[in-house]
Design a binder for these strands. Structure first.
Length: 809
RNA sequence: GGGCCCGUGGUCUAGCUGGUUAUGACGUCGCCUUUACGAGGCGAAGGUCAUGCGUUCGAAUCGCAUCGGGCCCA
């Protein structure tokens, strides 16, 4: 056996990655009748780069898949790329320096597709370098033909069941991007602003109203105060006159009006925020549109029409001041709802949009959340809170250039909705003709295509259906849906996970997976969130190049599910050390297994001790992996391998291996134990460190087991019969003696291999009997000429069993 | 404002269905070339388990409150 002195991780990792691909080790076989284990991972967006958070999450999920594969399951592990939607548009515009509105839609779409392809190649390489084990042949991209087809099918299915509807509705709108967006795409940002006290008139008297958005005065439709507010009760049912614009609006009561805020009386405009929209709905107020799709004032704003929001605000404030209607202003900082992608404050604009009706299904969604197995379980409450707080149906149309088309045309006369035929999918309604000649409602033969595109989440919420060939291959679908596992960051429970549950329930009346694992974030060494602006971003690529993928993986597995993990360089170095240690221990072990035929007659105490402990470790690692507790697996196997196996066991058996005087049987017993232990430990580490374990496996075990990769070899099974409580106690006592004598030598500044003439152990008869079985090993390990039992004066007490010893030099 | 999570030696962390002396790593210090590994081995120092109150024979672990940090949502 020729094992190199050093392990070259860089060379080995690319070698094994190529090997796995060439041999199809991770290929899904639909004919395989073993139970399926499948994974739904987030398709990374082409607009981003792989960051260390991705690395952690994908590695963690990958260890689970590798474990399940070794259990003999049929593994379905697809991989997708998300090149859809607004994120891609913004990325392409930034990268090429060209704007979508500079060219035709088709030209822009082509540019997006071209750039996505380049980005995907890069992403594929990056993800591959993590040593993950998907079947790359079943990868998808969210704008490919198959995904477009599935997304349009989903829409048509929802339309036909009455869940997709189109309506004029106040819609969350980004004036910068010029599109409707969903509730979930917004976030709150604290911004500084000015609160103006503005004079309204009631029957000739002044009524002061505080607002930060005076430009909405022309859209003012009522004013509110709290029902308990004594100051304003007298105005109930009266009308107030809006300054500058002169129209009259009703004065009304509502619990939502905060007496403490501003003057305690608030104007309701259509629409400044979600409260305005709620008031508009519940009090059945008229709708006045003053802001257009690009954030300019509309006709209703009178002389301010055509100005952008901020300019109009300034002009109106000036005019109010000039007319003496501005009574005060105060600098404030308040929370503003902004579009998460561009940071622009959102508006509520009345437009015609497509929605998925789902507010009536909250109970169903809560029930679905309860059906899923959440790891960790407390993450379920994020889902529950989100469902309970839903206020709007899901707006799925976007007024953008690049995205999947609605498979829809409208009758030019009566707006009748015509959807595409399934056989024609995917369609671009601008290019294709509708499947009917005449409108069934009015007989008109002219149709116009829907110009809007589907929200990107309308497609990415279908990843389980996309992967399992929904409505395309029933046998395949039925075998694979619902999927076994979803891996998800805690930040996207409310959209990606929730939306996927929605689609699963609406389409199949089933939750899309059995289990859900939620991973945490990677923080910087100071435990702060990584961000470009802080400049504390770590690129996994650099880490892999410097330390190897296995070292990165070893680190990634140290966080529990749901918990954030700080990136610490020293932790990565710990992985490097582990690889080195594993290499050296294996090199030593295999050297002594050369030509060994796995035959033995009877096992020595130390060997039974190790094998018994090994079996407990197998049991614990198996149970932990089944519960997605890879960090426990990592910790347990690391500890067992390093301390029990290397520090204690290997030192014990060296003499039996090297010294012929110990006899052939004692050697065979050690060889058997080494074989079994190393093989099992390698396999248990394989999901975490797939490259180094493959390298060692191929140096010896692959041939013995006749298996071409450790990753499709059999996971070690716990054998209850090997658990040997008696041997464990005997071995533990021997270990206790070894520790004590080592400590004694160290304190006396002696080398560990320095000879002692005698070790005298002063213990009870039972212990003496137990230790007798290990005497030869003890003598060899401690370099003691003799071990005797007796009543002499002692000078050492052992740590664990408090045995009394005396060491004679 | 609501929900959820977290506070354990200098740093990171295990334990948290209550029960000997609180786990391990990094760092620090000392000693040592064990026929695998000095990228190693053997040791040492270092902790009022955030704070307070409570439940209990017994609390890092359970309950309540406070303080601090984080995430999600208003």
């Amino acid at each position: 056996m020729n094992i190199p002195k050093r392990y070259d991780a860089k060379e080995a990792e690319s070698k094994w990655q190529a090997f796995w691909e060439a041999k199809g080790i991770y290929k899904f076989n639909p004919e395989n009748n073993s139970p399926v284990f499948s994974l739904d991972t987030p398709p990374p967006t082409v607009s981003g780069e792989m960051h260390i958070g991705h690395a952690m999450a994908y590695i963690q999920a990958d260890t689970v898949m590798r474990f399940q594969r070794m259990l003999g399951k049929s593994i379905f592990y697809p991989f997708g790329f998300d090149d859809n939607g607004l994120a891609t548009e913004l990325y392409v515009e930034k990268k090429t320096g060209r704007l979508a509105e500079e060219m035709s839609r088709q030209e822009f779409v082509e540019l997006c597709l071209k750039e996505s392809e380049i980005a995907e190649k890069r992403l594929h390489e990056d993800w591959k370098s993590l040593g993950i084990s998907p079947d790359w042949d079943i990868s998808y991209r969210t704008t490919d033909e198959w995904c477009r087809k599935t997304s349009q099918r989903s829409f048509i299915h929802l339309y036909k069941m009455g869940r997709a509807y189109r309506k004029y509705e106040p819609t969350v709108w980004c004036p910068k991007c010029g599109t409707a967006i969903a509730q979930v795409e917004t976030e709150d940002k604290t911004l500084s602003s000015v609160l103006y006290d503005i004079t309204f008139k009631v029957e000739g008297a002044d009524l002061l109203i505080a607002t930060s958005r005076p430009e909405l005065l022309p859209a003012c439709v009522s004013v509110f105060y709290h029902p308990s507010d004594e100051r304003y009760k007298k105005y109930k049912g009266k009308m107030a006159t809006v300054p500058l614009f002169g129209h009259e609006v009703p004065i009304m009561e509502d619990e939502e009006a905060d007496p403490e805020s501003g003057t305690g009386i608030v104007m309701c405009c259509t629409a400044g925020d979600s409260t305005d929209v709620e008031w508009w709905k519940t009090h059945k107020l008229p709708w006045i549109s003053v802001i257009d799709e690009r954030g300019r004032m509309k006709e209703a704003a009178g002389k301010y029409a055509g100005m952008y929001i901020k300019k109009a605000r300034k002009a109106i404030v000036e005019d109010l001041a000039e007319q003496g209607l501005l009574k005060g202003k105060e600098e404030i900082s308040h929370n503003v709802n902004v579009h998460e992608r561009c940071g622009t404050a959102v508006e509520y604009i009345m437009t015609k949009q497509w929605f998925i009706k789902y507010l009536d299904l909250k109970e169903l969604f809560l029930d679905a959340g309860a059906q899923l197995n959440w790891y960790p379980s407390y993450m379920k409450s994020r889902y529950d809170n989100w469902v309970k707080g839903l206020k709007w149906d899901w707006c799925i149309s976007r007024q953008r250039y690049y995205g999947i088309s609605f498979p829809v045309w409208y009758c030019e006369e009566c707006d009748y909705v015509v959807v595409a035929d399934d056989k024609d999918l995917p369609v671009d309604p601008s290019e294709a003709t509708p499947p009917i000649d005449k409108c069934p409602k009015c007989g008109c033969d002219r149709f116009k295509p829907e110009q809007d595109v589907l929200d990107t989440w309308a497609t990415s919420s279908l990843t389980p259906q996309i992967a399992t060939r929904w409505k395309e291959d029933d046998a395949f679908f039925n075998k694979l849906y619902p999927m076994s596992l979803r891996s998800n960051g805690h930040d996207i429970i409310t959209f990606w996970l929730f939306n996927t549950v929605v689609k699963g329930l609406l389409h199949e009346n089933k939750v899309p997976w059995k289990d859900v694992i939620i991973n945490g974030f990677v923080l910087d060494p100071k435990r702060e969130k990584m961000s470009k602006s802080k400049g504390n971003i770590i690129k996994p690529k650099a880490t892999i190049e410097r330390y190897s993928a296995d070292a990165l993986r070893f680190w990634a597995c140290s966080a529990k599910l749901g918990e954030d993990l700080p990136y610490e360089e020293k932790e990565i170095r710990r992985g490097v050390k582990m690889i080195n240690k594993l290499w050296n221990a294996s090199k030593f072990t295999l050297l002594h297994l050369d030509g060994y035929d796995l035959k033995y007659n009877c096992l020595e105490v130390a060997d039974r001790w190790l094998l018994s402990k090994l079996n407990r470790v197998i049991g614990e690692c198996t149970a932990s992996f089944n519960d997605y507790e890879f960090s426990t697996v990592k910790k347990v196997i690391e500890n067992f391998f390093w301390h029990t196996f290397c520090d204690v066991y290997l030192e014990i058996v060296k003499d039996r291996l090297y010294n012929p005087e110990r006899g052939e049987e004692a050697k065979r017993s050690a060889q058997y134990t080494l074989y079994v232990a190393l093989q099992a430990m390698l396999k248990m580490m394989a999901p975490i460190m797939p490259h180094i374990t493959e390298e060692i496996y191929h140096a010896y075990f692959a041939e013995k087991e006749n298996c071409k990769s450790i990753h499709i070899s059999k996971w070690p099974e716990m054998d209850e019969d090997t658990i040997d409580e008696e041997a464990e106690e005997m071995g533990d006592k021997a270990e206790d003696v070894i520790s004590a004598v080592r400590k004694y030598k160290t304190l006396n500044k002696k080398a560990l291999n320095s000879e002692v003439s005698r070790i005298l152990i002063n213990c009870d008869n039972a212990t003496e009997k137990q230790l007798e079985g290990t005497c030869d090993d003890l003598k060899a390990t401690l370099h003691a000429k003799a071990i005797e039992f007796g009543d002499a004066e002692d000078n050492i007490i052992t740590e664990k069993y408090e045995l009394k010893l005396r060491v004679d030099w």
